[in-house]
């Protein structure tokens, strides 16, 4: 792999994730291309969310979680002892499964992340820009001082996206961002992702195969190993190929709906 031309943002090498003594993900190698959408699909418990959370070290928040192997971000191993996870998370933002705006005003929701990261510029401008990028500005511009919790589920999730892009990260991780939303709100988020990918690298975990097929450029299929119940990367490639001519029989079984 060549990191210098900036084509690849992440390069995972021989990744193993443990919760206590249980191995949740084993021997995974994976590269994530810059300014593309990469989707992680697979049945529940296959470790796709766990892998996603290694990209911004959110696994650190679980006391028993442990990681071996390397997660290289532009060639820098994120799990080096001298890497500060707080700094990592500024560069690699995250959107969660359930919309989780802060119980503060819409404005404050967006501004807070910028402020704690030492933003010195024009805050009003940044908030507007971020909300515009998240396709939410027109809906909330008249009620910026109202609680973020007063918005609908889809709007809340877009507010969370605006909040995530306010510190201007390089990568946005999305952990099943639409699983709590209705189809129309889901579609809006998907459109938004296609817009955002012009400026950001996006990695999305989804249970929804159609969603992966619709929005992603690359797809990685994970599956739980039957013997030790550890998650395993089965196949990774251009989305079109994964969905039309998968190389692995297990991938084909999953995407054709024979199981999962």
């Amino acid at each position: 792999m060549n990191y210098t031309n900036g084509k690849y943002v992440f390069d995972i090498q021989n990744l193993n994730c443990y919760y206590g003594s249980f191995r949740a993900v084993k021997d995974t190698d994976l590269s994530i291309e810059s300014k593309k959408i990469t989707a992680f699909i697979g049945p529940s418990g296959c470790g796709k969310s766990t892998v996603l959370r290694t990209f911004n070290r959110m696994n650190d928040l679980i006391p028993s979680a442990r990681v071996t192997g390397e997660v290289l971000f532009h060639g820098q191993n994120l799990y080096d002892p001298d890497v500060d996870p707080v700094e990592v998370r500024r560069r690699i933002g995250m959107v969660f499964q359930k919309p989780n705006p802060f119980p503060k005003s819409i404005y404050e929701n967006v501004a807070w992340g910028a402020r704690i990261n030492g933003f010195k510029g024009n805050m009003d401008e940044l908030v507007e820009q971020s909300l515009r990028q998240a396709a939410l500005w027109d809906e909330v511009k008249d009620k910026l001082d109202q609680s973020g919790l007063g918005l609908s589920g889809g709007q809340q999730q877009r507010l969370c996206i605006a909040r995530t892009i306010a510190p201007r990260p390089e990568v946005i991780l999305m952990d099943e961002p639409c699983s709590a939303l209705d189809p129309i709100a889901t579609l809006k988020i998907e459109d938004l992702m296609r817009q955002l990918v012009k400026n950001y690298t996006i990695i999305i975990v989804t249970h929804n195969m159609q969603q992966a097929a619709r929005v992603s450029d690359y797809t990685a299929y994970f599956l739980m190993d039957r013997d030790d119940r550890a998650g395993l990367l089965i196949e990774y490639g251009v989305t079109n190929e994964i969905f039309t001519k998968p190389k692995d029989q297990r991938t084909e079984d999953y995407i054709t709906g024979r199981f999962g």
């Binding site: 959110m58 928040l61 998370r89 500024r90 995250m94 989780n100 802060f102 704690i116 909040r163």
Partner: peptide, 14 residues
């Protein structure tokens, strides 16, 4: 809710 802590930490807060 834990989701608030995750949201805060996820934004690069200490």
């Amino acid at each position: 809710p834990n989701s608030l802590r995750q949201a805060g930490m996820g934004l690069g807060a200490t």
